[in-house]
Design a protein around this nucleic acid. Structure first.
Ligand SMILES: [Mn+2]
Ligand SMILES: [Mn+2]
Ligand SMILES: [Mn+2]
Ligand SMILES: [Mn+2]
Lengths: 216, 216
DNA sequence: GATAAAAGTTAGATTAGGCTAACTTTATTG
DNA sequence: CAATAAAGTTAGCCTAATCTAACTTTTATC
């Protein structure tokens, strides 16, 4: 039904509208690395298909059908990432680019089989929720590590953004999903946290890093 | 480097030139379901890239570089099919269409991982050889079942063509790769064979079927 | 060997997706 | 609230891949 390009637009639009409910043409263009005229023209096509709310000079929104279509692409992406990590032995920093391609495979049985083999996982390797087959997204409520109090012991349950650099930073410090850590101290000046966890009695994380670690 | 379309052209050209060494524009068009003008224009592009030997009104051939590129696509296709069957539990009749898409994923590590997880298989689920990482194809020498003598016991080692209908025909009769069967009789009139194998003491195969079963 | 058929090419159009440059509308701000 | 800045749209062009219709070359046939 949808081309890979359309799927990528929908997915980016879902990510952008997730916070605000709406997105700008330029924001979507930036997210996808295309010019604003390209966005305008594609967004109109998706509007004709009933997937995007669009009016000239107005912010973009997904329709319910668009939201569902987008979530099902995200489902394919995250199932793939989880499969690559859990069943094929890839590191969590290696899987995004492969999933970015595999997500466009048109074969319900392919993804259903992945899902079944993994026992219907609820989260991807970065802690993001895998939408269900209806396109509903059930997330955990996590807090940001930088908002935790000194003395608290929490478990990493997700990442706010998962760039390659950030994932390598975490790998270098043996930090991963499910790592249990205790907040030992907070530096008042720059908000950096000292944390401790298995094998790492004292590790300092900047506020920038701590704000990208979700715990719960 | 190559687009999915280019990869499909190269793959089809390798299949067509495999027997004769050369292929016609119309044959390639038919294999791909596109018109002859489309073939002419794509084949010229591949010629510019140094992958196809092309001269107006002359038969098409792959250059050594084109042959290698095509074989590497076939490698991705067949590794994928084997992975789908061996690691994901699909039937051999379900995997071709999925592999037709997955073969275009651009990620050497993805296919290297499949290969490793399966222990470097040499043949796909239909008995076709998986080209090596250099693009060399090492096939077994098989004979066609319809050329076997009455009384011979042989093992199915490949299929000449593997259409969905044919694979379902074989499934219905519990015939698959590695099935050992004995030629019990040959009907002189139409060349049909009576064979026997585990669970099937007498099964009649038409000459058409027998000619598509490779044994060795 | 002339003629008809088949195969291949050329020409011109289409659709998907993308771009830059110019223009218009909305938002900001002095 | 007028002037500027920012955002968005329009116009026009591009490349990849496809098509049909018309034409040319090659092959087959009498
Ligand atoms: Mn991802
Ligand atoms: Mn993608
Ligand atoms: Mn196949
Ligand atoms: Mn393909």
């Amino acid at each position: 039904m949808a081309t890979p390009t359309e799927e990528n637009y929908l997915k980016a639009l879902l990510a952008l509208t997730d916070a605000e409910g709406k997105a700008s043409v330029s924001g979507l263009g930036q997210a996808l690395g295309v010019s604003t005229p390209s966005v305008t023209s594609m967004v109109r096509k998706l509007h004709e298909r009933g997937l995007v709310e669009y009016a000239r000079y107005q912010p973009l929104r997904l329709t319910p059908a668009g939201r569902k279509a987008a979530a099902l692409v995200v489902r394919k992406h995250r199932l793939t990432e989880m499969f690559l990590v859990d069943m094929m032995g890839f590191g969590w920093e290696e899987v995004h680019n492969i999933a970015e391609q595999v997500e466009h495979v048109d074969s319900p049985s392919f993804f259903a089989r992945m899902d079944k083999l993994m026992g219907h996982p609820k989260f991807d390797p970065h802690g993001s929720p895998i939408p269900d087959t209806e396109g509903s997204i059930h997330d955990l409520d996590h807090r940001r590590l930088d908002e935790c109090a000194v003395g608290e012991t929490v478990t990493i349950s997700g990442l706010n953004h998962s760039s390659n650099d950030f994932l390598h930073y975490l790998n270098d410090r043996d930090l991963s999903l499910h790592t249990e850590l205790t907040v030992v101290a907070r530096e008042a000046y720059d908000g950096s946290l000292t944390v401790s966890y298995v094998g790492h009695p004292r590790e300092v994380l900047s506020q920038v890093v701590a704000s990208k670690l979700l715990v719960g």
